[in-house]
Design a protein around this nucleic acid. Structure first.
Lengths: 215, 215, 215, 215
DNA sequence: AATGAATGAGGATTCATTCAT
DNA sequence: TATGAATGAATCCTCATTCAT
């Protein structure tokens, strides 16, 4: 039994090595430009071994996506729980999304690519739907916070919670994309770091119920 | 001489037909997924003809990029000029960026791809620098408007103009990406259309000098 | 126009060279054991060229089948027409089938393989159906001769014409298979040649209406 | 000693399980189409185990052939012995060949494939010679019956006994091939069943000494 | 003896690019 | 100039066989 477990552990390690290699390469070169041979070489295995662990290139990709999405979900959840107060929670989740993306750029890129039209074409509709489903789920969780903000009077009553979440998500994504460029050219990293916090402050400030503040 | 000029016109028309076809296809399917045969067929020529006009697939791609960037520049410039008032100008440029992107999705996608790390790898550093240069130029033009907004007291004095432009640009890009998905899955198009205007309103509202308003 | 036609002729020649090469190799090694590279090399072209003329390995195979079946059909038809008298016609068609098979062993083998279960599995049901359809057609033509033989009193009234055709076909096929072995081992070629005529004589003799002869 | 024999029995059982699995699969899908993994799974063992019992895929295939040939031999022998009268014996052997083939389609197919040119190429000349030898032996046994038929005046004196046996064998094989098709397309199974008996009747009728009958 | 993970040669197919006409 | 046939490197995937456990 010990022996079996040792063998299984080894297999699991291989699998993880493959996933790490694939994640890195998919993220750097995109789905189509990454070849199974490259992945195998980077993972230190033979081509055929990949197919022992994943039925196809697409399944390997999907597995990475799903794992990545799950990781994101946990991070956001933790951020929401650990912050106090509605405004703080909203900011925490927003910043957690950015920080997690920067910490795991491969995951961010793979998920983003899954979202972009031209990468979608190589994936089965099912894969795309699965990833989209999880993203929508985040957005709805986030909306709930915003809704509470509106109900509590913090944010102005005309604000649509889901649209605000959507906006925050797209803004964060746009900033991360910029931050992940090897040579951003149009901005230096200090400015970007400031912008992460500033951006959500701006959005929240704009969404506040100024009537009530003025009183 | 007339004949020569007729011949040249014909050649130019061919070249443009090829570029239109390529733009459409690169934008829909991405660089790798688009084949030279498809481009040729859509342009109504033979495969070999493409190589009379462009040295390689990559050169064709780059030519499209450069042309697209120029078109964007003109549109933004026109938007700035035709709007009245600082706030209106800022909004106009922001919305023009979005509208132009939606009107010319191919150009938007090709430029966005050029910006993303994994596509950059296929491009010469020179091309990347060229495109980046033009983008920085837009941002600086836009910054100038924001700076005037700050100086006039419309926007709060602590606002960094360049950072604000950057933020608006990334937000707009993030929204356009979503809008261009064939099946956005997480949002319907009505919501998105509202969001285009709402987003810049929110950003501007958040950037305003509320002290002065309250008075 | 002359030039175009020259080019087209060349293309047609290539196509035929490929078909000849494929026919030979499929017949010698079977469908699965034959590789596209081998076919290309034997045809004196590059691998890619095959795909200019045939969409896939299967389509190439099918094309050979269909052409082969047609050739058979014409041969049998000619045999039927040129012989005099019912009995002679039946014998002529039977022998023509054998002779054509021996003259074009590749075609015979390819068609036989299409018929055998394990080769069918690699082919689309459509391919199989198409070939089967033509074979059934032969059998029905042949049946018609036998039916006339029964009606004229030459063959015994209890004889089922279609079954007799089937039997003759299977017998002929069985003999050809033996004749095509490089080293038959169980029979020498003189014996086989005698057997070709003898076999149909035996079958016809057995099918005759002996009552009427006895009168 | 008991333990050792138990172990040996187990080993033998494994070996037989593997052979049964392989026979079934080779027969259904052909040599190339059958994978060692499939055989292992069907036999309830691991892939590696196959190589403890058989040096290679080919050796496994050959072992099945040889065993199959032996089984055929016994069946035919039994049929000859249990029938009474020359004509009955000839028919019995003929029908036994067909029935055994239908009862053990795997064996039939494997042997037939061994006989066909394209499969022979994978086999050592020795194996082919061995199988051929056994087949010739059948044919000679069968010839003996026919010879007696000629000598007794049942069959016409001009009939060559070996050729007649050859013919009967090829006819039977041709019919079995048709009968084993999953979807015969050109004939239904009722007709085929009638044809089994009808065919040997026709052949024998054709071979009879009609002069003597007429008297 | 049994296992099953790992290997890597081999096969079908695609497509950017070349070049003879 | 325009064509499109030809090329062959590159890609995904399969599977017989080996070997450490």
């Amino acid at each position: 039994m010990d022996k079996i477990s040792r063998r299984e552990r080894k297999k699991l390690e291989r699998r993880e090595a493959i996933m790490r290699a694939a994640e890195e390469l998919f993220s750097r070169h995109g789905y189509r430009e990454t070849t199974m041979l490259e992945i195998a070489e980077r993972a230190g295995t033979a081509k055929g071994t990949l197919y022992l662990h994943f039925k196809s290139k697409e399944e390997l990709y999907l597995t990475i996506c799903v794992k990545g999405v799950a990781g994101f979900g946990e991070t956001l959840e933790r951020a929401r729980e650990s912050a106090d107060g509605l405004e703080e929670k909203i900011k925490a989740v927003y910043l957690a999304y950015i920080r997690h993306s920067l910490r795991e750029p491969s995951v961010f890129r793979v998920l983003r690519d899954t979202f972009l039209e031209n990468v979608r074409q190589n994936l089965s509709p099912d894969t795309v739907r699965q990833v989209s489903g999880i993203i929508r789920n985040w957005l709805e969780n986030e909306s709930q916070l915003v809704r509470e903000g509106v109900e509590s009077g913090l944010l102005r009553p005309t604000l649509d919670p889901y649209r605000f979440s959507l906006l925050a998500w797209r803004t964060a994504t746009g900033l991360v994309e910029l931050a992940l460029l090897e040579d951003p050219m149009v901005v230096d990293s200090t400015q970007l770091n400031v912008l992460f916090e500033e951006s959500i402050d701006l959005l929240l400030q704009g969404a506040k119920n100024h009537r009530s503040e003025e009183v």
